[in-house]
């Protein structure tokens, strides 16, 4: 290391502290302390019937394990992720690939049309879809009726409420994912695609053998972002269904909210928090590891 380099880069402890302390204080108080506190609180019985918290061991976890609503909540959360994420990624990829083509002066219009839901709060987006899914005067049922499909009760239907929530979520999120893919596409060197063209590769062949493999790293990021987003769905459920009918759209954060702020069971809510944090981090770790392995093999 050259002497002058060490002179400017080796900082005194107090100076480093000056730069990091503002962030570290808030990280400690609102990110890391809450995790510790959730673990501690999850071991307490602390609810309406026991307003004075007392140690209860693993009681709250046992309560959850035996709770049929919790099982339904897990099912709904996973189902939502497994259906809505692949669908939104496919749509985002389609949009991005098309928007990357030279489409002339209409291109910014198309781009705005798909991206604008990113600016719409999920709570407001949910309102738009409540109106669209209205069973008697909603636009969705009207056009389905024109296609000869019988009326669906959507948000009041045990089967169709969750798909309705998924649709609103996909509508809101695809634009953002498409923009991420568009950024990935723009990073692919033009001459690589041109070389493929010269070799006689058509649009589909270029897409399959050049573009998609090179978008691997973007996809890892897109999947991670989508998993984080989908596990946190709350606003749409709160506005559209309140978890109903019969908990068919109840998802993990909504159930957490109900336990804490409707039923005032802080102990069970804390146990849910712990399970959620562990679940989220391990799913993200698994996704990233799995996808990175595949990305490197395929390229």
């Amino acid at each position: 290391m050259p002497p002058e380099a060490s002179c400017y880069s080796r900082a005194r402890g107090t100076e480093v502290l000056l730069y990091l302390l503002p962030s570290l204080v808030f990280l400690a108080v609102f990110t890391y302390w809450p995790i510790v506190r959730a673990v501690a609180t999850s071991l307490l019985e602390w609810n309406i019937s026991h307003p004075q918290p007392r140690f209860a061991g693993l009681r709250n976890y046992i309560v959850l394990a035996a709770d049929p609503v919790f099982h339904l909540v897990m099912r709904n959360t996973l189902l939502l992720a497994l259906v809505a994420i692949p669908l939104s990624i496919a749509l985002a990829l389609l949009f991005a690939v098309l928007l990357h083509e030279p489409l002339g002066s209409l291109r910014p219009v198309y781009r705005a049309a798909v991206f604008y839901p990113t600016m719409v709060p999920m709570a407001a987006a949910a309102m738009l879809w409540v109106w669209l899914f209205n069973p008697s005067i909603g636009l969705v049922n009207y056009y389905l009726g024109r296609l000869g499909i019988p009326r669906v009760e959507w948000l009041y239907d045990m089967t169709w409420a969750l798909p309705a929530v998924m649709i609103s979520w996909i509508w809101k999120n695809v634009g953002y994912l498409a923009i991420l893919y568009l950024a990935g596409l723009q990073a692919i060197p033009r001459d690589l695609l041109e070389a493929a063209s010269v070799e006689g590769a058509g649009f589909w062949q270029r897409l399959r053998h050049v573009t998609l493999p090179l978008l691997g790293p973007t996809t890892v990021f897109v999947v991670a972002v989508s998993v984080i987003n989908s596990f946190q769905i709350f606003d749409a459920v709160h506005i559209m269904t309140q978890g109903g009918p019969a908990d068919r759209t109840n998802v993990v954060i909504y159930y957490l909210y109900q336990q804490a702020f409707r039923f005032w069971d802080i102990g069970v809510a804390s146990a849910l928090t712990v399970l959620f944090v562990v679940g989220l981090l391990s799913v993200i770790a698994a996704v990233v590891r799995q996808m990175e392995r595949r990305v490197f093999y395929e390229v």
Partner: peptide, 27 residues
Amino acid sequence: LEFRWRDILFYLFIVQMMLPIHAVIVP
């Protein structure tokens, strides 16, 4: 800057990206 525990401290910042506020609303 170079300082002790730089990587560990940076890791604390990175994990926050994956652990959004919604995860820990109760505490």
